[in-house]
Nucleic acid binder design. Sequence first.
DNA 1: GTCTATAGATTGATAGAC
DNA 2: GTCTATCAATCTATAGAC
Lengths: 188, 188
Amino acid sequence: MDRKQQILDAAERLVRARGFDGFSYGDLEAEIGIRKASIHHHFPSKAELGLALTARYRGQVVGKLGAVAARRTRAADRLAEYLDLYREALAGGEQVCLCVALSAGRDSLNPDTLAELDAFNAASLDWLTATFKLARSDGSIKGVEEPGLEAAAALALVEGAQLIARAAGDVLKFDLATAQLKARIRLV
Amino acid sequence: MDRKQQILDAAERLVRARGFDGFSYGDLEAEIGIRKASIHHHFPSKAELGLALTARYRGQVVGKLGAVAARRTRAADRLAEYLDLYREALAGGEQVCLCVALSAGRDSLNPDTLAELDAFNAASLDWLTATFKLARSDGSIKGVEEPGLEAAAALALVEGAQLIARAAGDVLKFDLATAQLKARIRLV
DNA sequence: GTCTATAGATTGATAGAC
DNA sequence: GTCTATCAATCTATAGAC
């Protein structure tokens, strides 16, 4: 089946490594092993491919975050897993998450895809805000006062940490940038 | 006069709005009003243009940060001006700083340009580290413990805040993401 | 320094056979 | 669904006249 999923997998890798303007149907042809024309059969235009990519990504991440919240009852543990998700998305410094990759090249996206990107950021903020609210009651993260501001700062921090790690091609830069936030997590 | 500077000005605007892969010599032709071939006379290849752009940018920012340090003796005032510089670089949500624009599309850059980007990040980190060291002695920023970690976190925070503001096309997202850091600044 | 003209490659996309 | 063939547009870059 899933030529469509296979194409989306390859496209996602390419976008996250090179940006939306940095990959082509020709690249997909080389990666997947079928002709450009065949790829157009599944995704008639690059804009539709971009939209499908973004929508799928949002669904996946929302699912993962939901699973983390279901599995972890302490805010500190949720935040630690959140940071790990972003760290792993770096693939050692070779990629960034799709959200970071698309945000910079915003002008290349059509309105539908931009709306998906907005929805992704909103979902992330909601999840983080809920996490910091929980932290205020369970006390598992130090010094939380305004959950909404904590969430906005945490989202910017992880996205910026990804960008810096990607620029250097070194995942350790991500660890350095997030060390201070991580240090606020109370063990046990 | 300086065609070269004029070309760099236009190229910088375009890169910051669309990314390095998102602009062409054709765009420059339209913006400046001379032919593509004439632009190649000043910058034979796009790679050389990118390098000149990055080198000039680093020099400008280093100069600005030096001027801030010369003008402001309190760490808090220096940090406030630093945040303002990044906020202004957003141009209302239409652009990001050159560093953010280039980091995402890292694969399109040649080694020289990547080295400039590294040097830019290193200079930013140095300046921020010195600022947080000063804060630890003058007490103008609340709760500073490790200047190096504060610097790494602050750099990631402003870059991520730019990215989020750019994605939404709304400079207020930058303010939201940086509000918590700003709240640590002691007045007077 | 700027121009016209052009090269060769790549881009996203389509037509139509199998 | 995949292919060959092809399109028009755009890309970076060069040659050579003025």
